[in-house]
Amino acid sequence: MAFEDASARRVTLTAEQAGGRLDKTLAEALPDLSRARIQALLAQGQVSRDGTTLSDASAKAQAGDYRLLIPPPLPADPQPEAIPLRVLYEDAYLIVVDKPAGMAAHPAPGNETGTLVNALLAHCGASLSGIGGVVRPGIVHRIDKETSGILVAAKTDAAHQGLSALFAAHDIDRAYVALVRGAPQPAKGTIVTRLGRSSSDRKKMAVLKTGGREAITHYVVERTFGPAEKPLAARVSCRLETGRTHQIRVHMASKGSPCLGDPTYGSGPPAAPVREAMAQAALTRQALHAAVLGFVHPVTGETLRFESPPPPDMATLEALLSAL
């Protein structure tokens, strides 16, 4: 990821300076940049040594010429944008929306505008909860930019605190529909791993032996496509017990059945008939949709449950796969 308006910082590390952790060594050499800031730049692919991009903050610093690209600062306050929203529910405390694929949840480098936060600011005005900070007002949880489906946002601080407590206690019903390569075995199960940043690519998540955070996904293969003895693809329902970054995408890939169209965790192309169906359906993102969200209203105590059918790209793809 490169930022067009980024300013470059350069520093040369000598052999005497080398040997320690990369993030710590660079922070010592560039005292106006914090160690956390340098870690973020490494994770974004904005640090290079002698032309080679670096991403592992814990790697040993080597002697050489380093270049750090500093992206322009985000605006202090996201601006309201009149972006149409599909609102499933709204009251004085919270709002539930069906987010389209391609919309980021909140502003971030490379996605400063056109986000759900920008749309909510226009729709809700100044009523969004401020607990998430100026960049993320009202945002209690996220789904990936290219994942479609249901999100809840808080309009008051009391709702924000209550919703955050529900998510922390895993007391939320969240189900996703995934169209995957092949079919995970067994056809029903629970995946329990630890997830954290990949040591080889800090922009990716990975299953870790130690460290990271516990991640639990319950899955059921609802339908397979192609030969019964060796399915070419499958529709899988995934229920989240925890909500880690990229959790379903990493867990499905760990079972050898990554989400179709996943540019990060795809690990190899699907069979030719599936590729043809994906092209015909114009699927240009991971085939993952947040289909169900259920929770007890944190203020009124009402039990709420919302469902959203997969959008046209996934629905068309499933119909085409059914003919295999």
Rank of each mutant, 00 (worst) to 15 (best):
S254R: 04
G132K: 06
R244F: 10
P309R: 03
L22V: 15
L42W: 07
A29E: 13
A169E: 15
P75S: 10
A6Y: 11
L69Q: 05
G189C: 04
L283G: 08
S129P: 07
H123G: 02
G149K: 01
Q17C: 12
A159D: 06
L293G: 01
R235W: 05
M314Q: 12
I70M: 14
L121P: 01
V97P: 04
T190Q: 11
G261K: 01
P80D: 02
G133T: 13
F295I: 10
L69V: 02
S308Q: 14
D56C: 06
R285T: 04
S127C: 02
G19Q: 09
R9Y: 06
E229R: 10
I216Y: 07
Q286R: 02
T284N: 06
G110M: 07
R249S: 03
L324C: 02
D50H: 12
R35F: 09
R67K: 06
E4H: 10
G149M: 00
Q39H: 09
P31E: 05
A36S: 14
I150K: 03
E222R: 15
Y93F: 15
E81F: 12
I150F: 04
I216S: 05
G266D: 09
T52C: 04
S267M: 13
G20D: 11
D65G: 07
A291R: 03
I131K: 09
R49E: 07
T190Y: 08
Y219T: 11
V299M: 13
S199I: 10
P72S: 15
L151M: 15
V87P: 01
T190K: 09
A2P: 08
L324S: 01
V11F: 10
V220R: 11
A158T: 06
G261Y: 00
S129K: 04
P186H: 02
H160N: 07
V236Q: 11
R67T: 12
L179S: 03
Q39F: 08
D32F: 08
A8H: 04
H123P: 01
A287P: 12
P186E: 02
R249T: 03
E318L: 11
S267F: 13
G266P: 08
D313I: 00
S200H: 12
M252H: 13
R142V: 04
C124E: 00
G110C: 05
F167D: 05
T52A: 09
G130P: 01
G133W: 13
A165H: 07
D50W: 13
P231C: 11
D157S: 14
A206E: 08
A2G: 13
A104H: 00
A76Q: 08
L195R: 02
A168E: 14
P273G: 09
L151N: 04
L74H: 13
V177P: 01
A36C: 03
A315K: 01
A108G: 14
A82W: 05
V274R: 00
Y66F: 14
V207L: 13
G19I: 11
A159W: 04
A153K: 00
H246A: 03
A281Q: 10
G162A: 10
G45T: 05
Q46C: 14
A168L: 11
V192R: 15
D65F: 08
H289F: 00
M103G: 08
K60V: 02
A59G: 10
A291Q: 06
V152L: 06
A253F: 03
L304Y: 09
I38H: 10
